[in-house]
Design a binder for these strands. Structure first.
Lengths: 238, 238
DNA sequence: CTCGAACCAGATACGTTGTACACAACGAAG
DNA sequence: CTTCGTTGTGTACAACGTATCTGGTTCGAG
């Protein structure tokens, strides 16, 4: 735009002077990208879209991230900075808090559940910190290193699995501009009816008719989490 | 190609006769797509690639699936047909078997862990069957409908979370043609060293030095699963 | 104060993707 | 033989990630 040689000199003089340098930074790229993904989902993340949002040419962000994969890693690290584990809790309270906070993080940034295998394994500073804190919470309980890590990863697996589902529901609801679980079920009703008419799923059908907490996702999450922590506590006598 | 009117008659006569009709079917499309995804990952699934593999024009499969989303659903249902839950087990053995079989399924089809939110929620016949069987296994234990579903989903969440990680590792290993966890760690070593040199992760570092079962993924999976089932059993007295 | 190198963003372009749409070849029915 | 519904083909387009080249800006060394 600023280098448009075909424009008359006088028009060019009218234009605002070129933006001061250093308009971009990893920070700004990360926050902008996260804002896009939070608002419109992971598929709205496009190098071109990001550049447009930054007010910059499509290729400009490539100075700061080597490609889209890099961008995703940057975003992940950026949001994980919000996880803060309070000190002075016992192992169970620590893991529980971590789980609940991770849930909140993943509900706020639903795209976290859709990362590529690469991005899932990315060793970013803020994720390392989370792992360290979890391991610290499990230290001094006479568990060997493998067991400590396994306990942490088990809780982490439950959280990620639960939120994979929870955030998928939430994503579909928002993609279709529905108001909640009820409207989603309305949307799915024809298909569900079709399945039920086959008569192959009587127990499922009974659930559909009698359940009353279908959308109480916090209750479901907490219930599962507490079962898991119970099991861990008794198995290792801690 | 076959309809190229500008070609000389003789050339047209040389061409192989048009393929017999009904070369395509949902079945053939599903198995072909699954084969591609199993061998080369989810990103290798392209409508054009699929068509090429089927020996057909790029738009041909659209007669059978309305788009890529549909194709993914078809693939999911196709592979879930392999889950067979033996009868006559108690609730715990049932859930355990289901979990282990789901793990095997997801290890065999690593792309299952990378599905879009839409595909994750897809209500396909074979997935309905799995849910039904799980609920049947939990029936008659004096649990209310919400709790039954919650227990099933808790176990399912753990399995999916564990395999989200496990299959991400496996996917990266195969993408980079590494031989296993050791080579993956070699690859990541420089980055890990960098983190460790910051001195911020002493407990993690201790784990890295002393752990001996880093790649014993079955042990980790079973351990977590048994903890979870223990917790469920004691909490509900079943 | 000048000059050159290092840095930063812009412009252009290529190959690949999902898919809309119009058309053509076939099998069967009249 | 004609007609028609079904099934696969051909062409086309907008949007994507990103390689590469170009030009303007900044800053430190002389």
């Amino acid at each position: 735009m600023a280098g448009d040689k075909s424009a008359p000199l006088w028009e060019r003089l009218e234009r605002p002077s070129p933006a001061p340098r250093q308009t971009l930074s990893s920070q700004r790229i990360a926050t902008t990208a996260v804002a896009i993904a939070d608002g419109e989902g992971l598929e709205a993340i496009t190098m071109r879209r990001l550049a447009a949002e930054l007010g910059v040419a499509p290729m400009a962000p490539y100075r700061y991230v080597s490609g889209k994969d890099d961008l995703l890693e940057l975003m992940v690290d950026h949001v994980y900075a919000d996880l803060r584990l309070p000190r002075g809790l016992d192992w169970r309270e620590s893991l529980r808090t971590l789980a609940v906070q991770t849930r909140e993080l993943m509900l706020q940034h639903r795209w976290l559940a859709q990362l590529s295998p690469r991005a899932k394994l990315s060793l970013t500073p803020n994720r390392m910190t989370v792992a360290e804190q979890a391991l610290v919470a499990l230290d001094g309980l006479d568990l060997d290193a493998d067991t400590m890590m396994s306990v942490f990863r088990t809780v982490d697996a439950y959280v990620h699995g639960a939120l994979s589902y929870e955030s998928a529901v939430s994503t579909v609801i928002s993609e279709q501009s529905l108001s909640g679980g009820d409207e989603l079920r309305d949307e799915l009703a024809p298909l569900m009816m079709w399945h039920m008419r086959t008569g192959r799923y009587p127990t499922f059908q009974h659930y559909l008719r009698t359940a009353t907490r279908k959308d109480d996702t916090s209750w479901q999450f907490d219930l599962g989490l507490d079962c898991l922590l119970d099991g861990i506590a008794t198995r290792f006598g801690i």
